[in-house]
Design a protein around this nucleic acid. Structure first.
Lengths: 134, 134
DNA sequence: TTAGAGTCTCCCCACGGGTGGAGAGTCAAG
DNA sequence: CTTGACTCTCCACCCGTGGGGAGACTCTAA
């Protein structure tokens, strides 16, 4: 009558994730199984569902599985991972800001090129595209 | 006394690109050799340098090698690729704009999460991170 | 003629997060 | 006991743009 655990298909059904993905997470150490059946089937506890929700949420916030692994390690050590997550999220914002700067600059370059673009200029045998001058 | 062509190392030296990259471009069909030596060495013409400048420029504008291939095909057919390049660059701007929208939205989400973040909240056994509520 | 530099093809590796399939073993219901 | 669904491990592949190296061959200058 003890809860012996879910097999991987049951966890897939309840979490909405593909079986392959769950195996992948377990291989990475993100999702420890509570054990194996006699035949070698992975058995998962109820807390796996919470864990998968956590992983999904952090993935949606742009963290890599490696980042998430670190947060879960803190949790598994019995501490609250909130501080670590906060740092990761701040780093994420910094990365986004940098990317935004790059993209805005890049857009300016593209825009200025198209500004005086001539679709059908006089051919020039010395270059491939006269508008780009190369 | 005919110009029999450069070997790949000479082209690498003059273009500043690694030999490996030139072979890769030739395999893709981006950079046709004018032939092979008796021993099987690739031989390139002078126009290869112009071609590589063109490729480099379009790469720096965010086009993929596939996109560039299309432009070069137009050029090789004897037409000016300017119209095609213009379309590619406009598409590039559209992609950048979409990406900018996504990133701005994403930044808002991250920022609002950190707004009321508590680094060290009361532990809650039902969730892994009380701030995220998962 | 010979040494050494250059080049050839072919194959594996990188990144991140998985997906697909083969072949074999396991589990539960009828 | 059988059958069909489930699961196991292991290997390969995807995206793009090359990099690294092995083993064999070629070219050129002295």
């Amino acid at each position: 009558m003890a809860a012996v655990g879910m097999k991987i298909g049951a966890l897939a059904g309840r979490s909405g994730l593909p079986v392959k993905t769950l195996r992948y997470y377990e291989d990475l150490g993100l999702l420890p199984a509570i054990g194996r059946s006699e035949g070698g089937y992975r058995l998962f506890g109820e807390e796996s569902l919470r864990r998968l929700e956590f992983i999904r949420r952090l993935k949606s916030l742009g963290l890599t599985l490696d980042d998430i692994q670190e947060c879960l390690a803190v949790h598994d050590a019995g501490e609250l991972p909130c501080g670590d997550i906060q740092r990761q999220l701040q780093r994420q914002i910094d990365l986004v800001d940098e990317r935004l700067r790059e993209l805005r600059l890049f857009r300016k370059e593209l825009q200025s090129l198209l500004q005086n673009w001539q679709s059908d200029p006089a051919p020039n045998t010395a270059v491939i595209c006269p508008n780009l001058n190369v």
